[in-house]
Design a protein around this nucleic acid. Sequence first.
RNA 1: GCGGCUUUGGUGAAGCGGUUAACACACUGGAUUGUGGCUCCAGCAUGCGUGGGUUCGAUCCCCACAAGUCGCCCCA
Length: 421
Amino acid sequence: MLTNAPRGTKDILPEEVTAWNFVEEKIRSVCKRYGFQEIRTPHFEHTELFHRGIGEGTDVVDKEMYTFEDRGHRSITLRPENTASVVRAYLQNKLYGTGSATKLFYIGEMFRYDRPQAGRMREFHQFGVESIGQESPMADAEVILLAVDFLESLGLKDLQLSLNSVGCPKCRPMYRKALQDFFRDKLGELCEDCNSRFERSPMRILDCKVDADKPFMKDAPKITDCLCEECQEHFHAVQKYLTEADISFTLDPRLVRGLDYYTRTAFEIKYAPLGAQSAVAGGGRYDGLIEEMGGAPTPAVGFATGLERVLLALTKQGLLPEANAELDAFIIAQDEAASAMAFSLLARLRRAGITASMDFAGRSMKAQFKQANKLNARFALILGEEECKESAVTCKDMQTGDQRKISLEEIVTTICSEVKH
RNA sequence: GCGGCUUUGGUGAAGCGGUUAACACACUGGAUUGUGGCUCCAGCAUGCGUGGGUUCGAUCCCCACAAGUCGCCCCA
């Protein structure tokens, strides 16, 4: 118990940190190119924020939140996603005052109480983007482009982009009703799950694994046929811009997003080999959220990607960068007296910008050489009895095996000039 | 929250109801007492996820729990 991290959490060990840094660097560079600025919001918020922002009745809010009362009797929730927080920060700090659109990105931990699986942790990491204040379909396309660009810049292949429009508060109720009218007399033929979906989210019946292949499914009304004129136009424009930017996508009229705030554009990027957790990125437009949270009516688009899933995909495709630790010099000391001198040499080398190391355990010289070899040291600096007497150090090139004696005074500058080009 | 599968040392793993739990890698030490990468030798789980139970006896049988994993749900 004591030596086990809580279920659904995971240590990111030194060997993995290289990969995480690699991904985070890509995020920062792609966001910079697209003009998105980083924002960091608190890891917990007032519970009410998520109730309002994400919506009561969603799975995330109803059964996946880490909610607790703090010592001041406030109801606090560990953020299960970051859009609500970013919008809150946008309103609180009046970021709309800047005049132009506000384009933000974040990287950070999110928390959801769910049954863990590979690619689904209780504490997990998301990179996401929010473009606030632009109604243009170009903003939708820009955000999608950024997501694709990011994933492709990592080297990922075989990703599938699905696109849909979920309409707006004007046309979506009409679609819901159309669906319910269509399914009402077929409830007997639908599975148990679908029967329970009928009232709550009839759109989900469309992508039911059990019923999806039933012959009548293909006759079900499509949302894209029920969109109002404005939504229709917007959706076509998004497709046009994507096509012109040479992004391939498939229209998926059954793609619905689970959070209440989505309007119009919805998209998802999948990497199929990840199985049940194949959704690597997902997002869309949420024109109603900012007003819902007390701001002026403001359109917005965004997406989030699950970094654990991105890392899994990278691992599957063998794209992880190797962590090759480089060591310029390893100091080898023969005895205790030499060891003391070695330590001060170590300090001088490091202060001069050299990557250096030595053994503190008083092991045999042979063992120290083995260690130098294992650490891939460029030079072994040997301090034996003889060298101590002469105030010198034997410098051995671990590749060639060549070695020569150099005075203690000159050794640091010698190594510096050898190591730096 | 539901169902299936899995759980042996640092790692990959073999194993059987009954005396020393294979093997490999890694690690540590050694092969004429100042020199590595090859080779050779030696050491390295009183322990087989945790807790119960069955049995004369269980790592191997049963139950519970935990963790992991696959699928469902949901989502990133």
